[in-house]
């Protein structure tokens, strides 16, 4: 009886792990807001990943992502944008803006220092 319970429990846990972690979930993209100085800004909370993990900025206008690292883990202390050669350390519990290059439209991946957590910046052509 005890063994059967263990097997049932294990199967339930495995099923949960697969359902929770491995099934892809679409993430909502958040568009940056433009402030009075025509600077596009979007805040990304760094806590067990990047939230929101996808941000959208418009091409050609100056833009920055303000990272706010709440997560104390050293895993997320570094953020790397390989396309722009940006690699910066994020201070804990402080806002840390990083200017990004919006000259070319496209999708730009970024990640933590060990490439375990991922985020994405979409540079969109502006609608007329």
């Amino acid at each position: 009886m005890f063994k059967i319970l263990i097997v049932i429990g294990a199967l339930f846990l495995i099923g949960f792990i697969i359902w929770w972690f491995l099934i892809p979930r679409p993430q909502k993209a958040v568009t940056a807001r433009t402030d009075v100085n025509h600077l596009q800004n979007v805040t990304v909370k760094v806590d067990g990943g990047y939230r929101p993990s996808t941000v959208v900025v418009y091409q050609g206008k100056p833009a920055q992502i303000t990272f706010n690292r709440i997560d104390p883990s050293s895993c997320l202390e570094q953020v790397v944008f390989p396309d722009w050669g940006i690699s910066e350390y994020l201070p804990e519990k402080k806002e840390h803006p990083i200017k990004i290059d919006t000259s070319k439209a496209g999708e730009y991946q970024y990640a933590c220092g060990m490439n375990m957590f991922h985020g994405k910046v979409i540079v969109k052509k502006e609608r007329k």
Partner: peptide
């Protein structure tokens, strides 16, 4: 160990898992 627990929980809520 608290930061490990914090980060693991935060990641869990995001449907992510890492070394923490």
């Amino acid at each position: 160990a608290r930061p490990f627990l914090h980060s693991a929980w935060a990641a869990f809520k995001n449907h992510q898992a890492n070394m923490d």
